[in-house]
Design a protein around this nucleic acid. Structure first.
Lengths: 229, 229, 229, 229
DNA sequence: TATGAATGAGAATTCATTCAT
DNA sequence: CATGAATGAATTCTCATTCAT
């Protein structure tokens, strides 16, 4: 058969991206085969090459898309007028939300850096660094204003980011704790870390879920665990 | 390196393990080939089968050895008689040391879980859980005794562990911060997290280096970055 | 080049033929892909099937067209009333002209015989034989009339044809020697071969270029070398 | 089965070379598949990679080996002390012999230049040029000494080489004409070309066959025609 | 007339693994 | 203890070809 009736390029490409994220998250980039991927999408392996010039480029496309999404979304959400504490609170909220909702993307972006060719690696890492710097900036501002007390803002950035990102490792959509509680818990921990212990008592924010950010095509959670720590 | 004449089996096996850890850390388990590994050790690919029954079993052996080493070492080091704060302090010290000195092993153990067959996965994850529980136990004891105040000890375990483990991601032996400073910094952060902000001021411990733990065959650091967060 | 609006079928088919000759001459039939070909013409690969039922049939069409052109053109040009020497002279003139002007076609016809299916191979080789026989006939007539002295007319046919055809191998339109000089040089050599050394001194013929034969759509010479010997 | 008993690397490599020459001569380099080749040798396709790093490198190895053989053999055979006529006679003898005995190699070397990567192409063409220059040298010497009369030695080199090489195109070991007759016939033609018509009467040389040159592993002729002109 | 989405068969290549020596 | 020749299955990728639109 020459063509599946009603097939459509844009739709197919998006289907490949989603399936790829799932498969790479589950098995790893090297372990995933294009046959598997194609089958998941309902294509022949060769057909993937209509959309991505190589397996390697597929990975790059996925990572860049994810990181750009993250940066863009944060740019839209961040409260430019808030003080350091407010900004930190917003960052934690954003990070937990995006890192639970897009757990697979995050996981892939963290695990598959070494599968990138040197040039692609540099491009991707540059974007990660830009995201990191958002937190560093907030922490530095807080230190400067006296809101936060940190012995080493650089290390604190790494430490807090690792702590927050870790949530994707064990979070399950069906688990005991829902996003709002998570945000509250992690906010408490981070506030303590930066020396604002009192602000940690903050209850779960009351913003309606609908207004809360980067969801995109919410897909059902796969049964796969995304373990790391 | 060509084969050393008169090399005995045990030496060769250890050489394979070390080379494997380096290669897997650098390229990933799937991406590493037995030919590469063999060449690094000065062998033919087929000869590896004298020491490990398969590539998969090699990985399992590596991970189990690492986790058992971690557990055993902590068992020897932990101060059974100290209070929660002392125990936590000791754990942080131990964790930072082991996760910087054996960065590659840690990295592999974190990244390659998905390369394991289900049964092996279970065995390895069980050991990881046992290590995790060491921290959970300390935190719970601290909460019970009133030394720590934590809204959710389970999540706090994850959060603190992620924070501490993250150090391996960016730590460089030649970097600005040496181990003792790192330990001090992270101790400060964790103490704040558990509500013992005042204890964070703790200076670098004065214990003599010889008594300080899990070193094993200190090898030169490779130039490779082990990125995750 | 994008598709020219209002292009009609015949024009497109001719464009495909030309592009195919160029590509096959440059890369070889097996190495040329229909996608390359299509792109050169400003089409999608599938569209070629409007004009040729398969890649193989395209090659056959090209070769048959070339050989038929050669035979037909020679039929029109050959001096029926001349003696053996005059006929040989005319043949050399014709052969050199056609094999320099249509170098690519000649090259393809010589190189791609093995890419033909058995039946097509037979058809094409039959036409080549017919062309060969034109020279054999002239040589035989010359031997019979005593104009030429040749120990083995069959071998001489092959030898002379190989010599003449070889010109396409190194001839460049921009080179030192132009067609008329070439014809003169080769005429000299061939005349010696057939034992008419004195006729070799013949100067470059004075016929006006316009009357000189098989040009067809003179295209710019590509930079590609067409090497064989 | 891990290994065919008694198999031996050097023998296998030579078998691959021979089979490759035959297959490439018959089908063309692009059309030959490594599976076919392997099957002819009694191997799995992948096993060829023990001997040649890629299909492309296999071709290069074949061509270089052939051309080096030709150059080296001619270096050994050429009569340094003979005059131009004697040298030309020796060259013709050598060329015909080598181009009939190693027809397949010659054919491949002539047809597959375009299958080479640019760098390899240059290397191979350089060797071909060196061989060509041997004839040019002889012709130039003959012109200088007055033995030969040629209006354009460069073109004559091409023409004579094309004529001689053409023999491989139609020569069949089982055909009417054997090598010695061929040498005599072509010697006659070439001598006429260079203006030494009288020397063409030369009979078949009386040298014992054993002393006559580049035979190497005489293999049975395949039924395949090697057509070009 | 032409596109563009897709197929499916087959290509080169890689690699864990085996085993006679 | 180790080699080196070989396997065989799988992988990425290519490409002629089809056909609904």
């Amino acid at each position: 058969m020459a063509r599946t009736t009603g097939s459509d390029g844009a739709r197919t490409e998006e289907a490949i991206r989603q399936a790829a994220i799932d498969l790479i998250a589950a098995r790893g980039f090297e372990a995933m085969t294009l046959r598997e991927l194609a089958e998941k999408v309902g294509l022949q392996a060769g057909s993937i090459y209509r959309y991505f010039p190589s397996k390697a480029q597929l990975l790059v496309a996925l990572l860049l898309e994810h990181l750009n999404f993250l940066l863009e979304q944060w740019r839209l959400e961040r409260p430019a007028d808030a003080g350091p504490t407010g900004q930190l609170r917003a960052f934690i909220d954003f990070h937990i939300r995006s890192h639970t909702l897009r757990r697979r993307e995050v996981f892939v972006a963290n695990m598959e850096l070494r599968s990138l060719a040197p040039d692609d690696y540099r491009r991707v890492v540059a974007l990660r660094k830009r995201y990191e710097r958002e937190l560093t900036r907030i922490l530095a501002a807080g230190c400067a204003s006296g809101d936060f007390t940190l012995s080493d803002p650089k290390v604190s950035t790494f430490a807090i980011l690792a702590m927050l990102t870790g949530v994707g490792t064990w979070y399950r959509e069906a688990g005991r704790l829902k996003q709002p509680e998570l945000v509250a818990l992690y906010t408490g921990l981070v506030m303590r870390c930066v020396g604002r212990a009192d602000d940690g008592a903050g209850r779960v924010p009351a913003r309606p879920a609908a207004a809360r950010g980067p969801t995109r095509k919410s897909r059902k959670a796969p049964g796969v665990a995304l373990e790391t720590h």
